[in-house]
């Protein structure tokens, strides 16, 4: 039971990560793939933040009467990662808008068909 509680966070992180991974590899809609990527990212964030937590610790802001704090370093790393994640999401979505203009669809399999058969649609 102690092992289950001790590792439960990591297991759910794996479930979330695999849900995102499944969307990226199995589903064709590109906007949904981006949502899948962001789920994957959040899974990594939850993993880091879970590791930084200390039982009985408080938020890492120095105050009278507290001696035990959570580890601030993973917080900083994830703070950076969240912002970078949004930047990459914005770039990916911009590419999707361009792909829609060029191909008339954002379904990955349809674009692959078009390229194989040398069709030019949209444009």
């Amino acid at each position: 039971m102690e092992t289950v509680i001790g590792l439960f966070n990591y297991w759910i992180v794996i479930v979330l990560m695999m849900a995102g991974f499944y969307i990226v590899i199995a589903q064709e809609n590109m906007i949904k793939k981006m949502v899948g990527l962001s789920i994957f990212q959040v899974a990594v964030f939850v993993f880091y933040i879970s590791m930084s937590n200390v039982f009985g610790g408080t938020a890492p802001i120095a105050a009278e009467g507290f001696t035990r704090y959570s580890n601030p370093l993973p917080h900083v790393l994830i703070l950076t990662a969240i912002v970078v994640g949004v930047a990459t999401t914005a770039l990916g979505l911009a590419l999707i808008v361009r792909i829609k203009e060029e191909f008339g669809t954002i379904e990955d399999d349809q674009i692959r068909d078009m390229e194989e058969h040398g069709e030019e649609s949209g444009a």
Binding site: I49, N53, H75, I82
Partner: peptide
């Protein structure tokens, strides 16, 4: 994140994420 005492991260996630 708030529950895991990462308040700054929670703030960023709510605003940006």
């Amino acid at each position: 994140y708030v529950h895991l005492t990462a308040v700054d991260v929670a703030f960023t996630e709510a605003a940006v994420g």
